[in-house]
Amino acid sequence: MSAAFLRNKAAVLGLGLLAAIVAMAILAPVLYPDDPLDMVGTPFLWPGQDPSFPLGTDSLGRDVAAGIAHGARVSLLIGLWATVLGLALGVSIGAIGGYFGGWLDDVALRAVELFQTVPPFLLVIVLVAIWEPSIRNITLAIGLVSWPPVMRLTRAEFRSFREKDFVTAARGLGFGHGRIILREILPNALPPIVVTSSVMVATAILMESALSFLGLGDANRVSWGSMIGNGREVLRAAWFLTAVPGAMIVVAVLALNLVSDGLNEALNPRLGRS
C-alpha cells in the first residue's frame, strides 16, 4: 500500500508540500518568536524591498512572513481538530446506524438530515456568532458541520459489511456487537474514510479562512484568512498582501487533495493495485 502511494508522483508532491507547511507551522515560534501581530517595520514594504522582511509588511507595518508562518499553525490546528471531531461524530454515528439498522438508523439519519438541510457555512457563521470567536469555538463549529458526509459514507460501508459471511462467522465465535464493529468491520471500512478525511482537513482550512476573511475569526490570532481580509482594503495599492496568504491556502488545499487522491488509489483495490 505505501509502495503504491509512493509510486504516485502527484501524491508524493502533495505529501512534500504538506510536510513543508507542517514544518513551517512547527518552526514558526522559533523563526518568529515575537507576536506576528506586533508592528515591527515601516508599513507597505514590498517583498524584497527590505531584506529583514522577505515578504514585506502590511498596512500597519506587521511582518507578512511571520504572519504566514504563524497562520499555518492556526490553519493546520483548526483543520486537524475539526476533522478529528467530524470523524469521531460521523464514524461513530454512521457505524451504529449502519450496523444495527432499525430505529437507531432512523434516528441517526434524521439527525444527519437536520444538519444537511442547513448550508454548512451558514451554520458555522451562526455558531461562531453565538459563541465568542476563539480558535476552540471555530474548531468546534467546523467539526460539527463536517460530520454528515462521513456519517453517510460510514453507514453505507457498515450496511454492506454487516451482511458479509465473515461477520456471521464472527458472531458464531461469540463476538459481541462492539467487538464486531471495532475489530471486524471498521478495519474494512477505513480506506474510504481515510481518503475523505484528507479532503475534510482542506475544507476546514477553507472554512476558517472564509470566516476570518469575514472578520469572524479569532481577533487575537493571525490566520491566512484574516490576512486576506485585512489586505482586501488595500488591494489596489498592495495586492501582494492578499496574494501571498491566498497562495498559501491554494498550496495547502492542493497538497491535501493530492494526498487524498494518492490514498484513494493506494487504498482502493478496485482501481487496481499493481
Partner: peptide, 21 residues
C-alpha cells in the same frame, strides 16, 4: 457459549475470513 462450547464452520471459506486481518 458461542465459539467456546458450540462452534460452527460455514460453507464459504472464501468469504468467511476477514480480508483485512
Amino acid at each position: 457459549l458461542r465459539g467456546r462450547d458450540i462452534a460452527m464452520i460455514f460453507q464459504e471459506p472464501m468469504t468467511s475470513l476477514n480480508p483485512v486481518l
